[in-house]
Amino acid sequence: MTNKFEDIDNDMLSLFLEDMLPATKQMSITNSLKTYKDLWLLANMYNSCEVIRKKK
């Protein structure tokens, strides 16, 4: 399991944001969050993508 949110690679996070990642890999991302900042950043990235998806 990846230890830090910063260490999650681009592809894995992109798939997470697109809801295309298997559950176990999703868990590895959510469990890599160590601080409020990590959570805040992920929530903002995720919801930015949601807004983009809805507009398309």
Binding site: N10, L13, S14, L15, E18, L41, N44, M45, C49
Partner: peptide
């Protein structure tokens, strides 16, 4: 660096890049 694996869109990838 954008690879588009598993059909992940450019805008999704850029979302992470831009936020960071």
């Amino acid at each position: 660096s954008y690879r588009g694996d598993n059909k992940a869109r450019l805008s999704t990838w850029l979302s992470r890049v831009a936020w960071r």
